[in-house]
Nucleic acid binder design. Structure first.
Length: 572
DNA sequence: GCCGTTTTCGGCCCGACTGTTTTCAGTCG
């Protein structure tokens, strides 16, 4: 069983939790958490690195000790130190930390004083009123725990970016309409455009005495007020999303925006750079001693530590600070750069509109072309195309192209990759097309080895252009299929194949770190929407956001090219 | 446990809010 980076990250995170509950040095705990994040986000498999004898201590935050532990995990699948800690403290205590209001100290107290080791123990103790008798605990804490359980079933967890966008847009509109409010902006992972959002961090600048917090708690979506202060309040929305609102002074706006946009890891790194220059950076500004020297804009904050502005999508402390220092930040692709959509369905299979309707809507989007990529015959339930019907449709596209002006339909297909890696349509039919999107829709559960072989075999076909939704995942619904992304990208590079970044908000796949990996290898990306309706075209904004998180520039994205430019990139 | 443009030892980001407190620890982001 191959050890994935996420396995190493899970073990380190579990160990960090147990060490923290056990009262270990907080910096030691942080070291494990940092390493978990670095390994989890690392684009290359640490198991492969160990196999190749590469030096793991070159990973930031991984020293000699942790390198040894990673090796142990890779070789044995587990970590003896974790087993030891689990003998000391039951691992069920980790779950208690997830209860709002309970941190390591309280969890330890519950364990030591009341023998609480599991969520069930906790629930029982709370209902029996035993918690409030503990020193440092009171009735409020006990009530909070009980409420947590009644809420558990309806808890939101992380929500997809699209859902967060709906909620945020409405709230921002409401807050902006309040008298005295000058600025409202959503920061946090929402501004960094992460594919899923944990909560919404909203920044407000307003006139003195403005009633923004009073108005917030009476907003129609608010079901519970978690805290309410003059500068900071937290509320829970009906949808289960937590919203944190902060009121900041105008002169601190840039510092606050930077601070609350995060990520936490990025902020810590920036503040550390400040410390080295004798500066203190917080949400109110950049300070030398007591004197504020910057903070009105984010640019000022970055300039104070000698950096150029860094786009929010890059702020994950995954190399952007080093790149900024070298003047090597990417010039990220924008929505305006996109010239067309290379993954579009029509009524001919499972789409809602005709080719003509999809073409006219695309023209309104300002596009120069769309690729009509209906399904192939394997997907019989949506009446997928066979070779003969495809030939007829190609004729129709040619007729439409003569008739339409300002938009071009590209003859294409979303052809199924069969289990043995062959394509669902004969070469003679694929040959007539401008390009193909090749996708897996069946047998998602093959072994990593077999799935990788299947995809590479498919790429061997001379008419393979773009690999559609390359990991097959559906957010909240389906895990990605097992595939060796490094080998896949290598194969794509050798064969001149393109990978898709599917902008559908349920997919957003290729994921950000794999986009960056593709870019580093020189593999081109198609950012497309998988539109099944005219109204799906604007999903492009999610695709472009994800592309930006993956460091992609205009030149990395093939559908920023004109049709004549695109034709040259396609391998045929 | 990591790390080094003051350091191989001694630092490690920082502030708001809450609840349980008589001055602050714990949690959270």
């Amino acid at each position: 069983m191959p050890v994935h980076n996420s396995d190493v990250a899970d073990i380190f995170n579990e160990l960090a939790d147990l060490l923290e509950i056990g009262g270990a040095n907080q910096f030691r705990v942080r070291a494990y958490r940092t390493a978990a994040r670095v390994v989890g986000d690392h684009p290359h498999s640490v198991a492969m690195m160990v196999e190749r004898g590469e030096n793991l201590t070159e990973l930031p935050g991984v020293g000699k000790d942790l390198a040894g532990k990673i090796e142990e995990i890779v070789r044995t699948g587990s970590l003896s130190q974790l087993a030891e800690e689990e003998r000391r403290l039951p691992s069920g205590l980790r779950q208690l930390m997830k209860v709002a209001g309970l941190g390591p100290k309280r969890v330890y107290a519950l364990h030591k004083e009341l023998g609480i080791n599991t969520i069930e123990d906790l629930k029982k103790a709370a209902l029996e009123g035993r918690i409030s008798s503990l020193r440092g605990f009171g009735r409020k804490t006990e009530q909070m725990v009980i409420e947590e359980f009644s809420r558990r079933t309806g808890g939101a967890g992380r929500v997809r970016l699209q859902v967060a966008e709906e909620v945020a847009t409405a709230l921002v509109g409401y807050l902006r309409a309040i008298e005295g409010v000058r600025r409202v902006e959503v920061a946090g992972s929402y501004r960094r455009k992460k594919e899923t959002i944990g909560d919404l961090d909203v920044l407000v600048v307003c006139a003195p005495g403005c009633s923004v917090m009073d108005r917030l708690v009476t907003y129609v979506d608010v079901t519970k007020v978690l805290s309410k202060g003059i500068t900071k309040s937290s509320v829970l929305f009906r949808s289960g999303i937590q919203v944190d609102v902060r009121v900041v002074p105008e002169e601190s706006y840039g510092a606050a925006l930077h601070y609350f946009t995060g990520s936490k890891a990025h902020n810590i790194a920036i503040r550390l750079m400040g410390v080295k220059k004798g500066l203190k950076i917080n949400e109110y500004g950049v300070f030398r001693g007591r004197r504020s020297i910057a903070g009105r804009t984010e640019e000022e904050v970055y300039a104070s530590v000698g950096l150029p502005y860094i786009e929010p999508e890059l702020r994950e402390n995954l190399g952007e600070i080093e790149a900024a220092l070298k003047g090597a930040l990417p010039d990220l692709v924008t929505l305006d750069d996109i010239r067309g959509d290379l993954h579009v369905h029509t009524k001919e299979t499972d789409g809602r509109h005709t080719m003509r309707e999809m073409a006219e809507a695309a023209k309104e989007m300002g596009y120069a072309y769309i690729a009509v990529t209906d399904h192939s015959k394997r997907l019989a339930m949506v009446h997928g195309f066979d070779e003969r019907r495809l030939a007829k449709r190609n004729d129709e596209i040619e007729r439409l192209n003569e008739e339409l002006s300002g938009i071009r339909l590209l003859k294409s297909i979303e052809v199924d990759i069969l289990e043995d890696g062959s394509l669902d349509l004969a070469d003679w039919a694929l040959k007539e097309l401008d390009l193909t999107v090749c996708s897996i829709h069946s047998r998602l559960n093959l072994s990593r080895e077999k799935q990788t072989e299947r995809l590479i075999r498919a790429m061997d076909n001379p008419y393979f252009s773009i690999l559609g939704h390359p990991s097959g995942r559906l957010l909240d619904a389906r895990s990605p299929y097992e595939v060796d992304m490094e080998r896949l990208l290598d194969a794509a590079k050798q064969r001149g194949c393109i990978l898709e970044l599917n902008g559908h908000p349920d997919r957003l796949d290729l994921v950000d770190i794999n986009c960056k990996m593709a870019k580093d290898l020189g593999v081109k990306i198609s950012v497309s929407t998988d539109a099944h309706s005219k109204s799906d075209y604007p999903f492009m904004r999610f695709g472009v956001a994800q592309a930006r998180r993956g460091w992609l520039e205009k030149a990395d994205v093939v559908n920023t090219l004109s049709w004549s430019g695109l034709k040259k990139v396609l391998k045929r």
